[in-house]
Each structure stands twice: as structure tokens, then as C-alpha cells.
Design a protein around this nucleic acid. Structure first.
Length: 275
DNA sequence: CGTTTTTGACCAGCGC
DNA sequence: GCGCTGGTCAAAAACG
């Protein structure tokens, strides 16, 4: 995928309209044409021809811009679908990645990402191992969420819109950072658990592991103290994908707003529509 | 005073 | 069976 999609050549540099003629945008072209035809007698033919030429030129540029926007949208959709596929596969295969832990066979850690039976197919041959797999398959769904935080911030808090109660903390063998254990405190019967630990490789990344599914609606919608609301579904996977969606949109917005020509064009377009 | 967090103790699974 | 390790419990402390 590379950066080709990020290299947004919007070709907006030529869209520098005269300040006194904002109405040349397509939404207003019909009105401009009417004005021209109505007041044609008051203007010279040269002026009319000049305006018409300008109108045609700007209309063409708008078509180009519209086409570019359509391409960007298509690329974004394509990229988003790829990301969806990627998160679906990585969330189930992450636990299979080489673990720094020599043991790496503990039931929770090792089965953390093993919800995908395909992972076991190549390895599990004996009856004993297939029994283990059956046990693992019965476990609640497990999803991982990586959140970049300020490394100086030592709190193990991942704001995901739900209300959590910490019930334990432990230093694990393969990571010097402590791991915090949380339960969903919004509903006492909610089976969801969350483990949060800093990444061993990058201390600025918090790795939140969700187990199970919420059996209630998201509390943040009911006006609780949580300040993030990116999970519309009670399913933890949905929270993850919504988070990715949000990140993508933010990145796109950041890229676009960094381009002064683009922001100038948007401003001109908006003012043109308002006028 | 009720709720949440902290933290040491305990339990269970797994490999040897 | 033993030791290691991750996960959970529960009493005490902290907090609002």
C-alpha cells in the first residue's frame, strides 16, 4: 500500500478565484449565468465572453476536484477494508507471534490470540492437544487494542467508553511493566475483563486485552464520566474497529488540513456556497 | 460513608 | 510432586 494514497495531489493550486467572484462555484453557476443573461445588455460582449470563459474554466476545475475527491474516497474505502481484514487476522494471530517468554504456555497468555482455530491446525496433532484446543475454543472472545500514550504517564488507563474496576495488578515475567486487571463495573453481571500492560518494546504503547462481551449498553451513552465514545456496539471488536476508523479519519483530516491550498479551497467553496 | 484502588496471599494450570 | 507463573481474592488504604 505504501504512501501512494497519502500522496494527495489534489491539484488545488490553480483554484485561486478572484475574491470578488466567489459565486463561480458550480452550485452558483446557474445563478451566475442567469445574472449574465439578465444584465447582458449592461455589459460589453468582451466582458460577457470573459466571464463565460472563466465560468467554463472553473467548472472544469471543479469537475477535476470532484473526481480527485472521488478517487480519495475510493482509496480510503479500499484502505479501510484492508485494515479491517488486517485487524481481523492479527487480533487472532497475535498470540502466535514469537513470544519473548521461553515458557509462553500459560493458558491465558498463550491462548490470548488463539481464537482462530486455523492457528492450531498446523500444530495440534495429538489428541491431547486437540483437547486443549477444544478448551481454548470455549473461551470468550479475546481482542487486543494498542493505544499510544504519553510514556511519562504511568497510569494503565485505556479510555474506551466503558467503566472499569481494577481488581488486581501483577508483574509478569516477560515484561517489566506491571499488568493491571480490570472488570466491567457498570453491570455486576457483565463478564468482560480487561488486562492492560505497557508494551515491552515500546513503553509508550498500552496493550489492552479484552475478554468476553458486554451484556449491557455502553455507559458513556448514558452520561457517565467516560469521555471517549468510540464503541457503539457492546462487542469489544467493534470498539477496536471504531477506534481504527477514528484514527484513520483523523489522519486523513490532518493530512488534508496540512495542505494550505486544500484548506484555502475548502474555505473558498464554503464561502461561495454561503454567498 | 460508599466506592475504588492497592497489594500481599492464595489458587490453579502447566512443564519438568 | 514440585516449582514457576498468571489470575483472582480480599482486607486495608485512599479517595470523593
Amino acid at each position: 500500500m505504501g504512501s501512494s494514497w497519502l500522496d494527495l495531489d489534489l491539484n488545488v493550486g490553480s483554484l485561486r478565484f478572484p475574491v470578488d467572484a466567489p459565486e463561480v462555484f458550480p452550485v452558483e453557476s446557474k445563478r451566475v449565468e442567469d445574472k449574465i443573461s439578465m444584465r447582458g445588455g449592461e455589459r460589453s460582449d468582451a466582458q460577457v465572453e470573459g466571464l463565460e470563459a472563466e465560468l467554463i474554466r472553473v467548472t472544469e476545475e471543479n469537475k477535476k476536484l470532484d473526481e480527485t475527491l472521488r478517487i480519495i474516497t475510493a482509496k480510503y474505502t479500499s484502505l479501510w477494508n484492508q485494515l479491517n481484514d488486517l485487524t481481523t487476522t492479527t487480533s487472532s494471530s497475535e498470540g502466535a507471534s514469537p513470544s519473548p517468554s521461553p515458557a509462553g504456555k500459560r493458558k491465558s497468555e498463550s491462548s490470548g490470540g488463539h481464537t482462530e482455530p486455523a492457528n492450531c491446525n498446523a500444530e495440534c496433532t495429538s489428541a491431547e492437544e486437540s483437547c486443549k484446543r477444544v478448551r481454548q475454543d470455549c473461551k470468550p472472545p479475546v481482542w487486543k487494542l494498542h493505544v499510544r500514550t504519553n510514556p511519562s504517564d504511568s497510569s494503565l488507563v485505556v479510555k474506551d467508553g466503558y467503566q472499569w474496576r481494577k481488581y488486581g495488578q501483577k508483574v509478569t515475567r516477560d515484561n517489566p511493566s506491571p499488568r493491571a486487571y480490570f472488570r466491567c463495573s457498570f453491570a455486576p453481571s457483565c463478564p468482560v475483563k480487561k488486562k492492560v500492560q505497557r508494551s515491552a518494546e515500546d513503553q509508550s504503547i498500552l496493550v489492552a486485552t479484552y475478554e468476553g462481551e458486554h451484556n449491557h449498553s455502553q455507559p458513556s451513552k448514558l452520561g457517565d464520566r467516560s469521555d471517549v465514545d468510540f464503541g457503539r456496539s457492546s462487542h469489544p471488536k467493534s470498539s477496536v474497529t471504531e477506534e481504527l476508523h477514528r484514527t484513520l479519519v483523523e489522519q486523513m483530516a490532518r493530512l488534508l488540513t496540512k495542505n494550505p491550498a486544500f484548506t484555502a479551497s475548502v474555505a473558498t467553496a464554503i464561502s461561495g456556497m454561503m454567498l
